[in-house]
């Protein structure tokens, strides 16, 4: 028997962590290839709204997940096209992707604000009253397990497969990769779209399970926290997952502080995740003395000089 409040806290932690982690993992893959995509917030939003609309109109959750993931991935391909094919500034393109994603999803989702879902992502194992830590882990929905699977798969692909090694090589050294004959543009394009797909999955989790409804600006800066998480995790999947759990815990803890005897304005509680993210980022950078383990070629467009 475990304390009921603790059960609630743990459950909320896992859910908040899942949302942040999947988006962060996608960005990690993109950044490993040397492409910085600051559009995570916009991509999550696109995935969230399109998944929600698909769920309302078709009633099929499976279909909703597919639509959310695909549309965010297609949306990310704008960034891939502008930065990989046209070699334009990655910071500018990513920022605009966020702005465009937020306004586009507000436009598409306008008719769906306030609508209720008939279906919701249910936990795979149905446990009426979870009262142990194991029960909490078992009572998550499919995207949670998918997140774990993606974590293991990403770590494996990056470290143990040719594709992953090539991806990492491109992110570290463009010129050498080029002379080795690696297909830089193709790899970076794929990595960016995969990053978008992951962000889309995180968005679907937001509207089909975490909240679950659609309203403007509901991503609430989570895309940016995901970006900070990649830095926190030192571009390593498992460490990023640990970071996501930590941030998820802090996000879950905020609204519960009162039950533990802390009096705090709810408005202040709302901004604590952002303050903590900044503090963690500062401490981390000081601790690592500026060398965060970022891919060396991040943000630099590849251009083969005339020969």
């Amino acid at each position: 028997m475990v304390d009921i409040q603790f059960i609630g806290l743990l459950n909320a932690t896992l859910q908040a962590a899942t949302l942040l982690f999947i988006a962060a993992l996608g960005e990690l893959i993109t950044e490993k290839s040397g492409i910085l995509n600051l559009g995570v917030e916009g991509m999550i939003s696109i995935g969230a709204v399109s998944g929600f609309i698909a769920a309302i109109n078709t009633g099929s959750l499976f279909f909703a997940i597919i639509i959310g993931v695909l549309s965010a991935s297609v949306f990310a391909s704008i960034h891939a096209f502008v930065t990989v094919v046209l070699k334009q500034d990655q910071t500018v393109s990513g920022l605009i992707l966020t702005i465009l994603g937020l306004s586009l999803s507000s436009l598409i989702g306008k008719k769906y604000v306030g609508k209720k879902l008939d279906v919701k992502l249910e936990s795979i194992v149905n446990i009426a009253e979870p009262d142990s830590i194991l029960d909490i882990f078992l009572s998550q929905n499919i995207i949670f397990y998918l997140g774990i699977l993606l974590m293991v798969a990403t770590a494996y692909v990056l470290k143990r497969t040719m594709f992953g090694r090539r991806l990492e090589a491109i992110g570290e050294d463009l010129k050498s990769s080029d002379s080795m004959g690696l297909k830089i543009a193709k790899t970076q394009f794929i990595a960016t779209c995969v990053g978008g797909a992951f962000a889309g999955l995180s968005g679907v989790y937001l509207t089909l399970s975490y909240v679950p409804y659609w309203t403007d600006g509901m991503t609430a800066g989570r895309g940016w926290i995901a970006l900070a998480l990649v830095i926190f995790g030192g571009w390593k999947p498992y460490r990023t997952a640990f970071g996501a759990l930590l941030f998820g815990f802090l996000e879950a803890l905020g609204p519960r502080l009162q039950t533990y005897g802390f009096e705090m304005s709810p408005y202040i509680v709302k901004i604590t995740p952002y303050i903590i993210t900044i503090l963690v980022l500062i401490l981390l950078t000081i601790f690592k003395n500026g060398d965060t383990g970022a891919p060396r070629n991040i943000g630099i467009p590849f251009f083969r000089e005339n020969r």
């Binding site: 830095i231 202040i268 993210t277 500062i282």
Partner: peptide, 27 residues
Amino acid sequence: LFGVNEIITTLLTNYIVFGLTIYLING
């Protein structure tokens, strides 16, 4: 001083200041 990524820190301050504004005008 430390080379902390300014893109993320400046962006996150938006949410903090907005929250502070709501806190003040409700308090």
